[in-house]
Amino acid sequence: MTASVVLSRREWLLSDRPASRLQARLGRAYVAWRRFSANRLALIGMLIIIALLVVAAFADVLTPYSPTVGDLKNARLLPPGAAHWFGTDDLGRDIYSRVVYGARWTLYVVILVAIIAAPIGLLVGTIAGYAGGWTDTILMRITDIFLAFPKLVLALAFVAALGPGIENAVLAIAITSWPPYARIARAETLTVRNSDYIKAVQLMGASPFRIVLRHIMPLCISSLIIRVTLDMAGIILTAAGLGFLGLGAQPPLPEWGAMIASGRRFILDQWWVAAAPGAAILIVSLGFNLLGDGLRDALDPRSGDQ
């Protein structure tokens, strides 16, 4: 009984003659999900990212100590133990609590960078692709120039001028990470620009602005999401690098890169101060990489082997 219901629901989803737009969409999503969930590594990646979200959301519940105020008198540089799972740092703060709160800052950085850089890239790419001609040449030349820059060094110089701080780090990373998105958006735009349905919209008198916004941009979204997900790890690493150099988050913010920097002074004797935040960065970046790979394989079967 239940089996037949499940079967028929699957058949409904996999039908090659969908009766409604909703059925077609759900069917496609279902196929993508089946491909995605067949990939064990991708599922692990997704679990890691879900865990990151949960930890960030419930940081106050999950932590026994304050992330910024430590017990200087009794708890300086304690090794990992029952009271302090990951040990304490030089200011007597519980490293476990700081790592948990650090999840929030990591999310803050990646989300802000994505929100700033992806739309810039999308806009530049779709305009260049749709307008063509000189607009295209100039916009793409600028994009290529930015692509040819060393990202981390440039971000470093930006932060040096803007002044250290997590907001400026976000801005600097965003400024250096939009070009690939512009490239992707342009490529997608070029494939649909001359299609019949765009011609139809043009004939109906839609303005270029409306065509780009309503008919071209939505088509770029899925490849853009894949690319952004794949870039998340790089963004986290760059942000952590800036934090490590003292240019990103400033004390006493529990940002992972900055925590490693402060642990560096004690690395040979109290290795745990730097160990936990670094492991956190590794796990979260790995999660984003696995998730991004899985998404790409599931949504874009052409590049499944790349």
Binding site: A233, I260, R264, L268, A274, G278, I281, L282, F288, N289
Partner: peptide
Amino acid sequence: LIGYSVPIFWLGLLGLVLFY
């Protein structure tokens, strides 16, 4: 994948602890 995901400065510090 780990190479793509690891913060190199952290790996360097751990390497110093272990090998140095």
